[in-house]
Structures are given as structure tokens and as C-alpha cells.
Design a protein around this nucleic acid. Sequence first.
DNA 1: GTTCCACCGGAAACGGGGGACC
DNA 2: GGTCCCCCGTTTCCGGTGGAAC
Length: 337
Amino acid sequence: MILDARVLDPEFVPREVVHRDSEVDALSNALSPVTDGEPADTALLFGPSGTGKTCLARYTVGQLRETVIDVRTQYVNCWQNYSRYRVLYSILEGLDRTIDIHRQSTPTDVLLERVQAYDGPPFVVVLDEVDQLEDTGVLYDLYRTHGVSMVLVANREEDLFAGLDDRLVSRLHGSQRVRFEKYGVDELAAILRARVIRGLTEDAVDDANLRYIADAAAGDARIAISTLRTAARVADRQGMDSLPESVIVDAVPEAREEIQRKNLDQLKPHQKVLYEIIEEHETIAPGTLYERYREQVADPRSDRTLRTYLNKLATYDLVVPEGENRGRIYRLASQES
DNA sequence: GTTCCACCGGAAACGGGGGACC
DNA sequence: GGTCCCCCGTTTCCGGTGGAAC
């Protein structure tokens, strides 16, 4: 039943972007100077998870490469590349200039010098999840680098600007902003339909079931596509030639669990211990949490490190901190009231 | 109103791991 | 092989915040 599994991959960039025409136009306009060999202004993409920001950024930059011969591009995920060093290294990878750079011994300044020495055609850098950067100074570095144009992707404008250097904030003031709203059920169903046409056999799933998936995903395309993929995999394994409603209904919670499992798999052992302690209690105060943690591990980390871990868990949407100061408690995101 | 205390997070220091250089 | 340098995860230190207790 599955003809092309890549289409159901969360990273897949389709040949046509559905229901985001105005956003594509806005980003294309922002990048239009590149078609004349000039650097473009910084573009900022904001919106909740699963609204198509990353997909649209990759799609638009891909289109640019098809129409402009002389342009270079690089995609950097700031979640994985959160330090100044890693961002610069990743950018140099896009320029094929990492030969003789050693990740353990070459100073950051050398990487920056090498980026700033770039004198080729316009270079467009997409910095995804840019609000996850631990050192945002690299944005100022890049802003001042001639020939480099940035597309910054983040969930919330306030979160991004809160962490930025004042000089950069004022310079980004006039930048092109593209805002993404959650998809409606019809829009999500159309996105799924486009994937079904390219990835599954004809009539593998009817419109009513696609709308069911779209409705359950609550505006999040990532969850919708994950649900479709989970259902297709199950049906394919069982030798079915279409997706029955029962398989789709089961796939809805499974897809959410799969996303959560993937997040859990990325945790370090000590972070997992914290997660499991919070899981055991409905809610838990920080002091008690630290105490239980120290009881369970042989080589406990300091409380300060635990606070860093807990912030990480919150960023992964696994744990929710509630209240301030002495009233602070932690609970699992899946048990949110 | 004042003091105490739990909690948060920034900044600087520290140390491990790893590569370059002699 | 020894030394130097670098990044990065962690620790230490500490000031800020705000609710509780007096």
C-alpha cells in the first residue's frame, strides 16, 4: 500500500506547499534581492509547532536554488547546533570549508574569520529553532557578515527577541516577518491528501478518515502526518490495501506516543531519572524532586545542573513547570490539567 | 515591616576529552 | 610523550524574587 515512504517522513519537503501561498510569497519577496546577486534582508518566521515554518523555509530556499544558479544555501537546526561554535561549523559545512577544522581544537574565532572571509555568491542561511540558541551572539556575527542572508525560524517572537543583543534587536526591527497560524481541519486534510496521492496507493484512505486525522491533530501538521504514517505502517504490515477507520483511530494516540518516545530517547540517563520521578508523582516540588533524585543515583549532579536538565525537559514538551519561586511544581506535560 | 527561605538562573571557574605541535 | 589549546558539560557562587513566618 505504501508506494513512497519518504513522503510520510516528517523531514520531507513537498514539491508544492499547500495552503501557505501568502507566506511563500512573503518569504520569496524577502529573498528576492538574491536573484540579482545581492544579499537579502533577514527574514523572520514565527508560529506554533507543526504550522509548516521549517517546510516552507526549506521549500522557498529550494525554489531559489532552482531559479538562481549562483546562490548557496545552508540549513542549520539550532536545537542540535546550539552553541556559537556549532552554528559556525555547520555554516562552513554548507560552504565546503571545514577541511582542516578540528572540532576539538580549532578556536571559534578561526571559524568566524573563515565565514567572514567568504566572498562567493549570495549565501542564504536558514537558522531553524533559533530560539534554542544558547549563545545568540552568533546571530550578530552573521548579521555583520557581508554576503550572508539569514532566515530565522522560531515559535514565539517574544522568546527570540528576549535573548537577543540590543544592537541586533534594533537592526531586525524592519525585517520581514512572516507569521504562521495553526492549520484548520480542511487545510490539514488537504495537506494529508497531497501526501496520500504521492505516497500511498490510490484510494488507500478516504476523505472522511483524513478529516478525522486532521481534527485529532488539532492544527499540528507534524502530528497529522505522523498519525497517517503510523496508520499506513500498521495497515501495510497486515497486508491491507486501504486504511480502515479502526486502524486510524488507534494510530492517533500511537502517533503522539511515538513523538513523545522520540523526545524521551534523546534524554541523558540523569534527565530520564528526573522524568521518571515526576512521572511517579502527579505533581512534585523542586526540593522533593532533587531529594528523590539523589536517593536514586550513585553519582548525583548538582542542583544547578538539575535545573538546567528540567529546563531541557520543559523545552522538549515532556515536563511542565507551574508556579513561581516557592510555589513552583513540576508535572508531566501529558498529565497537564 | 522585617526576616527567612526555597527557588531560579547568570556568570565564571573547573576539569575531561581530544587534536595539534614540537 | 609532553605540552598547549580548545570546546563543552558541570560546578560553584551569588544576586534576585516572592511567599511564609514572625
